[in-house]
Every structure is written in structure tokens, then in C-alpha cells.
Computed example of a mutant assay.
Amino acid sequence: MFTVFVLGNIASGKSTACRYFESRGAMLIDLDELAKSLYVPGSDIVNALADEFGWDILDEEGGIRRSILASRAFASPDSVARLNGIVHPVLIEQLSLRILDPVCCTVSSPRYPFAVVEVSAPTGFEDAFGLADEILVISAPLSVRRERAIQRGMVPSDFDARSACQPDESALCNLATTVIDNSAADNSLFEQLDSWLACHGFIDTPDKEEADA
């Protein structure tokens, strides 16, 4: 299955782009949600996180208190790296199971035309990029993203702390096969996404749609 990893820093519009791809028929995999699904009480990964970030990140049932884990794991680039070192190997294995076609003696049509993997924290996850056919970055300047986040109710200091743990825009864009500019607050994001979809044959081009009509 054709697989595109979608990257973007906080308030870039990455999640909006991923949901739009899903509405266009993609299988959407949110890596954050996939990682959370691995946090099974008593599992090796949960025990390793507790050893690293403190056993008080666990609730009475042995599950992860996500807000406490996040406050510690995203406190600095070093703590993010420690979190990634625990979670990423298992995450990559589970992601592979979802997007790689099974080896079998019969050929069947995939349910989805393509897969979209939403990657919120690409730093340290580069080992998984070989699973992608394309890396797409949704980009916007830091000042634009900060203003958006604050307008949505995020505390400025929280944005600054989260942003400090993310790559700068130029470094992020250097990872990309394709960069989508989402600086403007208009429909240009969706127009660019439609162009990408049409170029890959996942939707008809506007000219063809008009001709068919």
C-alpha cells in the first residue's frame, strides 16, 4: 500500500491535513494514538516508562497518567529522546504490521487506496521513514503557529515549551519529499492537498472532473 508520512510542528495544520486525506479515502494512522494503545498495564513498555519517568505516572490500575507522563517526557529534548528510546522500537513494529502488505500466495485488492501516518514527533523516528513512500511536511512559520495555538486557547508558555522540543521549520522541511505551505488561513491548504492527491492518482484532476460532469 502506498504510504505517506505527514509531519508538522504544533499548530501547523498537520492534523487537519491528515483528516482531509482520510475524508478522501485514506487509511489514517495517528502515531500518538497508536503509541497510547501500547500502554497496557503491566506491559514491558509501561514498566520501562515508569522506571524512567517515575512510578507515580501510573494510576491505581497500573495505567499511564498521560498528563503526568507528558509533563515530564516533553520537558526537554533529552527527556523526549528518553521517551522515544522506549516507545519507538515497539511503535515501529506495530506500524509495520498495519501498513505492510502481508506475504501470501493470492492477490487481493486493498481496502484503502493509500495510508497516511500522522507523525507528531519526527525527531528520533527517522528509522521508520523507510516504511514511507513519501514524506510530506505541513509547514508554517513559528510566529504564525504560535498565534494560532494561543487563539485556540493554548497557554503561551505551554506552546513555547512544546515548540522548543520540536525541530525548527527548515530542519523539518529538509526531511520532506514534499512541503505544503500552510501559512495562510484560507483554503489554500486543501487546494494544495487536492493537487497532491491528483498527482498521485487518488482523485481526478479538476479538468477531468469538469469533463466528466
Rank of each mutant, 00 (worst) to 15 (best):
F114P: 08
D168N: 15
P110A: 07
P156C: 02
D56I: 10
R82L: 12
L34V: 03
Q151D: 13
S108N: 15
V46F: 05
R162L: 15
S157R: 12
S76H: 07
G124C: 04
E61M: 09
F114W: 04
V46Q: 09
G130V: 12
Y112P: 01
L58A: 03
I99Q: 04
E118N: 10
F129S: 06
S96Q: 14
C105F: 11
V87C: 00
V144H: 05
L131M: 10
Q151F: 06
V155N: 14
A171W: 00
L95H: 02
L34P: 08
G62D: 04
S139R: 04
L136G: 09
A75Q: 12
A75E: 14
T178H: 13
I68L: 15
R148M: 11
S79Q: 11
L49D: 00
R72W: 07
P122F: 01
L142C: 09
S37Y: 03
V90Q: 15
E147V: 06
V103N: 11
A176E: 09
E134V: 03
Y112E: 02
R162Y: 11
F129N: 00
G130M: 05
L49V: 01
A140C: 11
A149T: 02
S76V: 04
R72D: 00
F125C: 03
I86S: 10
D160L: 10
A73D: 00
D168S: 01
G85N: 11
V179F: 13
V107W: 10
N84T: 15
Q94E: 15
L131P: 04
S109D: 12
F74D: 07
D78T: 14
A115S: 15
I86K: 08
L91K: 03
S79G: 00
R72N: 04
F125H: 00
E134Q: 12
M154D: 02
D133L: 02
Q151T: 13
G62I: 06
V80C: 08
G153T: 03
R66Q: 13
S96R: 15
A171G: 00
S157D: 14
V116A: 00
V103C: 12
V144R: 06
E52D: 06
D51E: 13
S139V: 05
C105G: 08
R111C: 01
E60V: 12
F53A: 07
L91G: 05
E118P: 06
F129Q: 04
W55Y: 13
Q166R: 01
G42Q: 12
A73H: 06
Y112W: 09
P89F: 02
P141W: 06
E52R: 14
G130F: 11
L38K: 07
T123R: 12
F159R: 00
